[in-house]
Amino acid sequence: MRILWLNWRDIKHPLAGGAEVYTHEVAKRLAARGHEIILVTSRPKGLPPREEIDGYTVIRRGGKYTVYLEARRLYHQLKKEGWRPDVVIDEINTVPFLTPKYVKEPIVALIHQLCKDCWKYAVHPLAQPLGWWLEQRLHKPYIQAAKRGNLKVITVSPSTAQDLYDLGYPPYAVAIVPNGLDWELYKDCNSQKRDLVTYVGRITPYKRLEDLLKAWKTVEKSYDAELIIAGRADPRYLARLTKLAKRLDLSRVNIKANITQQEKKALLAEAKLLVYTSVREGWGQTILEAAACKTPSVVYNVPGLRDAVKHMETGVIVKPGNIEELAKTIVLVMTEEELGKRLGEMAYLYAQTFSWDFTAKLFLKEINTS
Rank of each mutant, 00 (worst) to 15 (best):
R2W: 08
W5M: 03
N7H: 15
R9D: 11
L15G: 05
G17Q: 05
V21G: 13
T23Y: 08
A31Q: 06
A32T: 02
A32R: 03
G34M: 15
E36C: 07
I37C: 05
I37F: 07
V40C: 11
S42E: 08
L47P: 07
P48R: 09
P49N: 12
E51T: 04
I59H: 03
K64E: 13
L69Q: 13
H76Q: 12
G82L: 07
G82W: 03
G82Y: 05
D86L: 04
V87P: 02
V87M: 08
T99I: 07
P100Q: 06
Y102W: 15
I111F: 01
C118H: 11
A122C: 08
H124I: 12
L126F: 13
L126N: 08
A127L: 15
L130D: 10
L130I: 15
G131A: 15
W133P: 01
W133L: 12
W133Q: 06
E135A: 09
R137P: 00
L138K: 01
K140P: 02
P141L: 09
Q144G: 10
A146E: 03
R148S: 13
R148C: 09
Q162M: 13
Q162V: 08
G168S: 06
Y172K: 10
V174C: 10
P178C: 07
P178I: 05
L181W: 01
L181P: 01
Y186L: 14
D188N: 14
Q192G: 14
K193C: 11
D195V: 10
L196Y: 03
L196V: 00
L196H: 01
V197F: 04
T198V: 15
V200F: 04
G201M: 09
R202D: 05
I203Q: 03
T204N: 04
P205G: 02
K214N: 13
K214R: 14
A215V: 06
W216H: 00
S222Q: 15
S222F: 12
E226P: 02
I228Q: 11
A230F: 00
G231F: 00
D234E: 14
L241P: 04
K243H: 14
K246W: 14
K246G: 15
R252N: 13
K256W: 01
I259R: 00
I259W: 02
K265L: 15
A271G: 07
A271P: 07
K272D: 10
T277K: 06
G282L: 14
W283K: 00
W283T: 01
L288M: 11
A290W: 09
A292S: 14
P296E: 08
S297W: 02
G304T: 02
G304F: 09
G304C: 06
L305V: 04
D307Y: 01
V309I: 12
T314P: 05
E325R: 05
E325C: 06
T329F: 09
I330P: 03
T335I: 09
E337I: 12
E338Q: 10
L339D: 07
L339C: 08
G340M: 08
K341R: 09
L349N: 08
A351W: 06
A351M: 03
T353L: 09
S355K: 07
F358A: 14
L362F: 09
F363W: 03
I367C: 04
N368Y: 13
T369M: 13
T369A: 15
S370E: 05
